[in-house]
Design a binder for these strands. Structure first.
Lengths: 230, 230, 230, 230
DNA sequence: CATGAATGAGTCTTCATTCAT
DNA sequence: AATGAATGAAGACTCATTCAT
């Protein structure tokens, strides 16, 4: 159980703690909250939000049920925190894969970039499928507010992908008539479900690879300008 | 409540033993069940499955809560019925759009077919967005069994779309190296979320049309064989 | 199903019914009520009062649930009727076995009478064990009123048995110091459970016969005056 | 709530790792459960099992309804616990009255033993009449499983009584032809209802004493060998 | 008169939240 | 600060009873 990080933080001893007075408490509070969120993620993913009781989470976190309420005001707000956490994770997983260190210059570069992004995203979701499950499956079904936040996440991803395609357009790599924004939208629609399938249990590597290859191929023919075709 | 003239139909029977008492209203069972399912769809979509009480549904249907249990054994099984109903609707909406009256012969035909299918599906989901919401958003978050049924629905849609692309392949219209099955998969991933966006409230016709046009364009370039390009 | 008696009553035809105007209706009403009570006895015994629904009874009687309420005002009052019916049956089973056609004259006669009574009662309960089950097991657990009626039944039986022993006392057959009333009490305590055991499923004839023989023997030695011992 | 000084007992422990938080009250579980069972006994006896709501029991115990479910999984299992408790009480009341410290030697001893047993049992049931009510009246009417457990209790009592009579037989005190097992059966049938009458409200000491005396007398004449008659 | 459809009062049970220790 | 015991509001579900046909 995630006790580790806490235990590691404590051995500094009372002497060390007194030296600077306050900060450690802040830290402790954050750590506890993180511990609770992590457990909530785990249990929400396994059982689903509604089927999960606060006791489940407390047990998973190895703390008393009452303790949760010292760090989180309610189950609903815990879900918010979990959502925030998951979104951050998803974004942090996707952003580096799309990050452009330098401007695009040639078609192969764009394709490579797209392929890299695609692989990174799919691989990442492969490693932490719970995140998508929470963000896409659970959250959408809770209430209006969360539904909006899910939309917001999708918009963010779309924006990030659109950025990539805008770069490509500026470099004259995009096929005439292609709207970077819409490309971003398409890509989002194709990427998220890609991860989602993993979540839902269809863990068939062969199918996945065929799907991935098809996506790359699709990108090559659909996105690139005619004269940019490799 | 509509009262069909069933009594008139009965006396014709031989050995017309005049049954005592109020005659059971024929089709009452199906009618009531349908009425309840319709109300359940409406309320589930508005509030979500868990936030919906049986009383809500009863109130919406204009009947007593107890009455529901004459036609449906439990809330969970009502959701099953709602899911069945929604799936049937989704399928019935998609199938005709994909139905091939005659074999594909030329590239324009395939593109037209794809475009027609796309439009039909998007339009249809535009008209009954609740269905997708239920099928894709709610159902996935309830329990394992329903999650599997959602996967089943997706597989069915994929199969239907794959059929279209197989026809195209046989007609030599598909680009070399394209796997019809994977094309079906991609198309499913692009179509379902297309409807889903409507569900989630982004009802912006301009964006939708751009998205739709992009899909067509994508199909043209990605799917068609080079020499089949119009 | 108990339809028989009803069908047999009807064939008199409308003409016959009109002749004397009213009585047949009375009869019909009584018959229906009897039919309902019979079904109630059957189902109450099988499932127990609380686990039995009015629909169960209606189904068993082959009538609609609503019909019951034309003959019986409520489930609770139906139980009263069932209790009345059962008590009457129990009494009618026990009374003839105890009926003294002529005064007791010699010890053998008394013993024979007791043995006959015993056998009759045990045999009777053997044939209709449901009655005791209802009267002793179910009824006692329903409410205060019925508990009192159960006590009343026991008192009645005690009285009947006491009568037998009073006769014996008058004939000088009873051992000195025996109180006929108390003898009746003892006998009731021994007889009712005798039947009860059958009800509860211990249907072992060998044990039953041993029990019966022991009762007789006990009666011989405990009740008879010394000089009356055969 | 009684608060035993448990904290004083703890620090003695080795490796006295000072657990954070409120220390669990030792024996709280058993205490609460016992408290709940006691209340359940009281209310079940007064109202009957079916007419008793969990709220009734909670109110009687002075706790919230929810609290019951921390200690008892369901109403039905609470009845099981109540039954267990009652059976244990009944047995613990009867056993000492039958306990044979030393082998039987003379007829007076047997009679005395029987009389003592009888008195003890009747007196005991006089003091806690609810127990029998629950065990014999309520339990028999709930479901098949409990009916069997009632039979089991009767069998146990029968066995215990039979043991007494076997001793008597070995000592040559039992009248020829008497079967100890059957004697046990008869005695059970006479003892249980003896208590039962109290339960059902016939609290007439005069009658009770006459009944008791008659039982003793019956035992003297019916059980003892001729030459053992005092 | 008989029927079965409709109903809602009443129960068990769960669980987020509070609070004494 | 942490805990776990206590709680009561809320919801699914049953079934005796009513009543239109």
């Amino acid at each position: 159980m995630p006790r580790t990080s806490l235990d590691a933080a404590e051995p500094a001893g009372p002497a060390a703690r007194r030296k600077r007075g306050r900060p450690p408490v802040r830290h402790l509070e954050e750590q506890r909250r993180a511990q609770i969120i992590a457990s909530a993620v785990a249990v929400f993913v396994e059982r689903g939000y509604h089927a999960t009781t606060m006791s489940d989470i407390a047990r998973h976190a190895g703390i008393g049920q009452g303790t949760i309420y010292r760090y989180v005001p309610s189950k609903r707000e815990l879900l918010d925190l979990v959502f925030d956490f998951s979104v951050e994770e998803v974004i942090s997983v996707v952003r580096p894969a799309l990050a452009a260190d330098e401007p695009l210059s040639d078609p192969a570069e764009l394709l490579a970039r797209v392929e890299a992004a695609l692989s990174a995203v799919v691989d990442a979701f492969d490693r932490r499928p719970e995140l998508l499950s929470l963000v896409l499956v659970e959250a959408g079904a809770i209430d209006e507010e969360l539904k909006l936040r899910v939309l917001g996440l999708e918009a963010t991803l779309t924006r990030m992908l659109a950025g990539l395609f805008e770069d490509a357009q500026e470099a004259g790599l995009l096929r005439a008539g292609m709207d970077p924004e819409v490309c971003g939208l398409l890509a989002t629609k194709l990427l998220l479900p890609a991860g989602l399938r993993e979540v839902r249990g269809q863990r068939d590597p062969a199918t996945r690879d065929r799907y991935r290859a098809a996506l790359i191929d699709l990108a090559r023919h659909a996105l690139l300008a005619e004269d940019a075709q490799p």
